[in-house]
Design a protein around this nucleic acid. Structure first.
Lengths: 346, 346
DNA sequence: TTGAAAGCGCTAACAC
DNA sequence: GTGTTAGCGCTTTCAA
């Protein structure tokens, strides 16, 4: 029966008006006879009535749905973020629409428009940074909107990020303290994407702090196409400039770097040290167990959702200030940088 | 401007009626003057009008939203499934609401009810198997519904699964051919969950085929609480019954088994062989590279979505037959079962 | 070819 | 305390 039961049916069955049912449903019983409340509640239960959220949303201009657009589901980092978002949303009574832009501007645009048509109450997005005017439009439309993980330079948005300068610096400092001097960093093309830019900045800062000159040839940019990293690793390791340590700035990249090293018959950490960005379930099971820069991903998702919901629910006459929340990463030290004796690790 | 523009506004601006706008929007131009069509289309574009999906859904009884409930986001297997579902949905014009039951009956129930209230057009679910009457109710409500990955014994549902008997058998047969006789299998509590039951069945079948007696002590059931598997591995390997090979039936479980083995200072495959269930990005990077049972997860998602959409769009007077789609797993052979000489594999 | 009007299921004044 | 009524933005007969 349930699926077709409407409020009118309930009202009829209980011998009251729709308004009464509506009030009781929404917890405004202050005003109702206990008897009425009881009766209506019973009918609702008996008929297994479930309010139609579309109708409610249409009328009330609130859907309790939040849209989230990620750029890559394969990376476990995002799954953790997602869990943080999901838990928070569920506990606050919001449902989630999840989409994947795959870093493509068109798809991102399509999803954003879908969200608007579906009247979501707010959007969380790891922006491709390729739809600047669209993000701006969102703001003009006063649709609550949070950029997660990436900063949108030049535009003022609510943002939740991890401090990537700090992350890069943490890793490189660790390598330097272990006695490494020729440290390479691998990156995907920066293209205005803040984590990439900032991790590189952190790398440079750390070198500078220790008076090491940054060598452009040790800054390796590779496309995200499969195999491209592996090739570059081999090239670099066979060149004059062979580094004694590598900082990888992405999960999947790290696995490819490992392959490249293996291809050459070299060993981590004996022949070369390696630090990965993002802790994963498998980090400690690699050969050797990997030292990683860990980002508080779950927390990031949580904070983004909380912030968004607060934006949504704030009386918008109050018009909250833009806010950037920045979290700190930390280093998880394992064996991939070796244990060099006589070196004082802090 | 966009966010508040309604069809009435467009109609007014274009000097036509709402009906006309509606028709044009929905591609029923057959009947309209090219001039009108042009004019309206231009206004729509100029005003950046986006139809309100709620209103449309309310009226039309179709939302083009599909709900999917998974039980565990951490497992990359599900992410692949999700990608298959997402790609298919997007290409067919459906949006996705994704939820996570965490194997908990209450949460599952809550999500299903949410979906119904939100008038989703159909549901894909990896069922906890703990809400049998709810699944049944769905059927009675004639809400298109697909069970993915798990069979719901005793109830007739549309289902997309991978053949798990075959998967278990494949793995064990491989181990036997490599000369292993004492083969253990690790499982989470079966609790009516078909993949677990069937993988065990496949294990037994393979043993039987080769005239090996199945030893109950080599069938290890462990809770899903962290560390529980690791403990059991150690117990088993220190016991009289120490096996020469282990079949793990889950991704995360495999990592824990590896830890247990490492704790004892033993080596794979020299001291013990290991096969993992589900191929992942990291399988080939473990030490040693892991032989796995690979499931066509992306395809599974794809098929489930296609089937669901076909159910949704089928004129339901036709009332399609229930259907169970079963896919075949395959073995990816690496080094974790050793290369024993003189043994004919295959 | 186009418009008028009714109604999808709900909420929220306003009246009684 | 409870009912009446007027929409929310759209689709869809039915008429013109």
């Amino acid at each position: 029966m349930s699926s077709k039961v409407t409020m009118t049916d309930v009202a009829k069955e209980a011998g009251v008006s729709k308004s009464t049912v509506s009030r009781i449903l929404n917890g405004n019983y202050g005003q109702n006879t206990e008897k009425t409340v009881h009766k209506v509640l019973k009918v609702i239960d008996d008929m297994d009535y479930r309010p139609n959220a579309l109708a409610k949303g249409l009328k009330g201009m609130k859907t309790n749905v939040i849209g989230i657009i990620l750029s890559n589901l394969q990376n476990p980092f995002w799954i953790k973020v997602l869990e943080g978002v999901e838990d928070t949303c569920r506990s606050k009574g919001y449902s989630l629409m999840i989409c994947n832009s795959n870093e493509e501007a068109d798809i991102e645009e399509e999803h954003i428009k879908q969200f608007q048509m579906r009247q979501v109450d707010g959007i969380i997005i790891n922006p491709t940074i390729k739809n600047l005017n669209l993000y701006d439009q969102l703001k003009k439309d006063r649709l609550p909107f949070i950029s997660i993980n990436r900063k949108i330079y030049g535009l003022e948005f609510d943002t939740v990020v991890v401090d990537n300068v700090s992350g890069g610096k943490l890793a490189v400092t660790h390598l330097i303290k272990l006695g490494n001097k020729k440290i390479a960093i691998f990156l995907y093309p920066t293209e205005g994407i803040s984590p990439r830019i900032e991790r590189l900045a952190g790398y440079k800062e750390a070198l500078k702090d220790y008076g090491i000159d940054s060598d452009p040839e040790l800054i390796v940019i590779a496309k995200e196409t499969p195999g491209s990293i592996r090739e570059k690793v081999k090239q670099l390791l066979l060149s004059q400039k062979r580094p004694d340590a590598i900082l990888s700035t992405n999960n999947m990249m790290t696995l490819e770097i490992l392959e490249g090293i293996k291809d050459l018959g070299l060993t981590v950490p004996d022949d070369i040290s390696l630090i990965g960005y993002d802790e994963t379930v498998w980090s400690k099971h690699l050969n050797p167990p990997l030292t990683t820069v860990n980002q508080p991903s779950y927390e990031m998702g949580q904070l983004a959702a909380e912030r968004l919901i607060s934006l949504i629910e704030s009386n918008d006459s109050v018009d909250e200030e833009m806010k950037t929340i920045s979290l700190e990463p930390n280093l998880i030290i394992r064996e991939s940088c070796g244990f060099k004796e006589g070196v004082n690790i802090n």
